[in-house]
């Protein structure tokens, strides 16, 4: 009898399978996540009867493998097997992982969402995606229900049942063999949950994208209140508004939409923080931070 894997071992094993071939320090993949779903072939499994938990991911990019995908902690389940499949076509990549599990105790419990860490190709920011969770209602098996029936009757019925079962198994095995020889059908989920309507599926507007970038710049400036950080943030803001390097502030302010309002204040404040004298730098960085906040607010 195979030794049962404990919960942490299950997690470690599955995680290592999911991340096979990836180094610890590997950079995140750049993906456009279109669907990320957790399902099972039954939501009411029976005790000691194996069933399948399926993770399905679809991304727009064509990639050879999916890294940094973490399956949920399957603490109340025994892992029997794991099969992964990555298919690419012109529409992108379909990743499907089927985990065969069995549960030994009746009751209700929920499998937590699977997670994926990647760079969102829509805006270039690192993000973590979650599937739906999976509530299961585990029923006791027929053999356990029958344990209270009288022994004589049980033996009699058992003999009949055994004969029927053997017959059914033979017929089933024959049919299954024929079926498998013709086509190996994929596991079809009994009830596939609808993919979560994730916000990432909607491409962010130009204004939202710019606001996120400005907020990132603000984080940088708050984390590092130095001249070099101010210069980097100034360069980043110039890139955001499409101004090439080598222009002066005057050139940038003459660009459409740059010469007025919060953006103008921001550009002037960043110019000050990049070129003012050392004693004024802290105040200049404060002003630049406030100007970044005001500009980010104006984009909402």
């Amino acid at each position: 009898m195979a030794r049962k894997l404990t919960a942490p071992l299950i997690l470690a094993a599955v995680a290592s399978l999911a991340c096979a071939g990836t180094g610890r320090g590997q950079t995140l993949q750049r993906l456009t996540v279109q669907a990320f779903v957790l399902s099972a072939d039954t939501m009411q499994p029976q005790v000691d009867v194996p069933f399948h938990v399926v993770v399905t991911l679809h991304v727009r990019e064509r990639v050879g493998q999916i890294t940094n995908l973490q399956l949920p902690m399957l603490a109340q389940l025994e892992l029997l097997g794991d099969e992964r499949q990555t298919l690419t076509d012109p529409r992108g990549t379909q990743y499907r992982e089927v985990v065969t599990v069995v549960v030994h105790d009746a009751g209700r419990f929920t499998i937590a969402p699977a997670t994926l860490q990647a760079i969102d190709a829509r805006d270039g920011k690192p993000k973590q995606w979650f599937t739906n969770d999976l509530p299961l209602s585990v029923r006791a098996s027929a053999t356990r229900v029958a344990s209270g029936v009288a022994a004589g009757l049980l033996v009699h019925v058992a003999r009949i049942l055994a004969a029927l079962i053997w017959f059914a198994l033979l017929v089933g095995a024959a049919l299954l063999a024929i079926f498998l020889l013709r086509r190996r059908a994929p596991l079809a989920p009994v009830r596939a949950p609808v993919a979560e309507p994730v916000s990432y599926q909607r491409a962010p507007s130009e204004s939202e994208r710019r606001r996120h970038q400005i907020e990132d710049a603000l984080l940088v400036l708050r984390a590092e209140r130095t001249r070099s950080a101010a210069v980097r943030v100034r360069a980043a803001v110039w890139r955001i508004i499409g101004a090439p390097e080598g222009e002066t502030l005057g050139d940038v302010l003459r660009r459409p939409g740059c010469g007025e309002g919060p953006l103008r204040d921001l550009l002037v404040a960043l110019e000050r923080s990049a070129f003012t004298y050392d004693e004024d730098l802290a105040a200049a960085v404060d002003d630049a931070g406030a100007a970044l906040e005001r500009y980010a607010e104006s984009l909402t």
């Binding site: 002066t248 502030l249 005057g250 110019e271 000050r272 070129f275 003012t276 004298y277 004024d280």
Partner: peptide, 8 residues
Amino acid sequence: GRDFALPD
């Protein structure tokens, strides 16, 4: 009105 010079 500034006490620092700019590229401009």
